[in-house]
């Protein structure tokens, strides 16, 4: 029985072998690049946070919420991880979740793993991150700004991830079914799922901001997206932010 269908997790056979291989290679390249860049954002404080973020995304992906009669969706998590732990570590978090789901829970086809990682871990995280960075000045202004940023980043991450499927199916879909017919329903449904994703992303980021705002990488990063500060600098900043959060 198919009791737990999964949003945006492709089953085996939907794409032909060359396309599956192509996106397998793209996924590997993305993961490899992220492994190199992740190092700079991981330290004794962010490493355990990142592990927990991955575990939380796994848990949240189990929760399908209804979006239309007979249609559900669940969090993909790209924007959430990008805001909390940055795009490189975040890509690794979502990739690990997708690998665990496919290998341990038979969720998301083995041969589609590359395409699924491309959609949710690469495209989704990148889209969520770009929106969040564009809105960072708003996010830094206060709690409401942060929640709006998280909501929009979450929504757009879901819609963009679904375009990944359309692209892949257009390149190498197996059924003789026109991808054009799937474009509008696919984007429309994922806009609705995206609203749910945005709400969950905002709630989660809001909860972290209430407890430990210093753990939100989006608010901590410098303009270049690299952490170049010293430890003292960091402590001073988190204290300042603590005061600001407390008074707002």
């Amino acid at each position: 029985m198919h009791t737990t269908p999964l949003a945006l997790h492709m089953t085996d056979g939907l794409l032909n072998a060359p396309t599956a291989l192509l996106f397998g290679a793209i996924a590997l390249a993305g993961i490899g690049f992220s492994l190199g860049r992740a190092r700079a954002t991981l330290d004794d404080r962010t490493a355990p946070m990142a592990g927990l973020v991955a575990a939380f995304v796994f848990a949240a992906q189990m929760i399908n919420f209804p979006v239309l009669p007979g249609v559900s969706g669940h969090l993909l998590g790209g924007a959430l991880v990008a805001i909390l732990v940055g795009p490189w570590v975040g890509t690794l978090c979502v990739s690990i979740v997708l690998v665990v789901q496919s290998l341990l829970f038979a969720d998301g086809g083995l041969t589609m793993l590359g395409a699924n990682i491309t959609n949710m871990a690469l495209i989704g995280t990148a889209a969520g991150y770009l929106v969040a960075v564009a809105l960072r000045p708003l996010a830094r202004r206060g709690r409401t700004g942060l929640l709006i940023t998280a909501f929009l980043a979450g929504t757009i991450n879901t819609v963009m991830a679904s375009t990944g499927f359309l692209l892949e199916y257009w390149i190498g879909g197996t059924a003789g079914f026109s991808v054009a017919q799937a474009v509008l329903p696919m984007l429309g449904i994922h806009l609705l799922i995206g609203v749910g994703e945005g709400i969950i992303t905002a709630l989660t980021v809001g909860a972290v901001a209430a407890g430990r705002p210093d753990l939100i990488l989006l608010l901590r990063e410098s303009r270049q997206g690299e952490r170049t500060r010293t430890r003292e600098d960091e402590n001073r900043r988190s204290q300042q932010r603590g005061t600001v959060e407390g008074t707002s």
Partner: peptide, 24 residues
Amino acid sequence: VALFVAAVVSYLADSSPDGLEAVT
């Protein structure tokens, strides 16, 4: 919270086909 969501809230998950499945 992650354990609670996976262990308890998971029983409330909607079992309808997800967005991708519905479209395909």
